[in-house]
């Protein structure tokens, strides 16, 4: 996983709530067996509309997506995170995320930033009035900064540490292989096996 410490870029206002992962990437793009190359599927249905914000050249090159509440609800497809990363996003700001999406994002170095709706609305207004406005997402300080404004966001210490170090979860867990083996020795015989 790529390390994440602090990131500064321009931001896209996505003024929608309940952006489910079927919207982020429709199921037809999930037939691929690779982990990259999903940018063409990102918001594919919405991008057919020339007015859709991602089609606006003013926001080209943006790396922070600013969305309404309940972003990433629905399907567990990690492809949604891969598509956002492939497009060039490093962080998504929303008042609330779907749990599975949030977990997937943390695994892939896409920072899910939870800010109150009021803060999101203020950011929307400012990046709409000037699409070149620089926004900084600082994981070290757990802050979003825009000009003179600063908003704190919550993230547990463990997730923050993993992101800042770019650590692979499997490697971390395998340090405790003895604990896993010890647990396995205590499993009751009535637990089912399928092989």
């Amino acid at each position: 996983m790529d390390k994440f410490t602090t990131h500064t870029g321009t931001a896209v206002p996505l003024r929608r709530s309940n952006v489910d992962t079927d919207q982020i990437i429709p199921a037809v793009y999930l037939k691929r067996v690779t982990r990259t190359g999903f940018a063409d599927g990102l918001f594919n249905a919405w991008r057919e509309d020339p007015q859709f914000v991602l089609n606006d050249p003013a926001y080209s090159g943006a790396s922070i997506l600013v969305a309404g509440p309940e972003f990433g609800t629905g399907s567990s497809r990690e492809h949604a995170v891969w598509a956002l990363r492939d497009w060039g996003f490093r962080a998504v700001i929303s008042p609330r995320f779907g749990d599975i999406f949030r977990g997937n994002a943390l695994k892939e170095g896409l920072l899910p930033v939870e800010l109150e709706l009021k803060a999101v609305e203020e950011i929307w207004a400012r990046i709409e009035s000037d699409p070149r406005t620089a926004v900084t997402v600082d994981l070290t300080a757990r802050e979003v900064r825009l000009g003179e404004s600063t908003w704190s966001f919550p993230l547990d210490d463990h997730s923050r540490w993993r992101l800042m170090e770019g650590l692979d979860d499997i490697g971390l867990t395998l340090r405790h292989a003895d604990d896993i083996a010890a647990y396995e020795a205590t499993r009751p015989s009535f637990k089912p096996a399928v092989a």
Binding site: G103, K107, T173, E184
Partner: peptide, 15 residues
């Protein structure tokens, strides 16, 4: 439900 990174984690560690 889990994502694909977690699928890999469970395959490798059963945890």
């Amino acid at each position: 439900g889990i994502g694909t990174s977690e699928v890999e984690h469970v395959l490798a560690t059963q945890t």
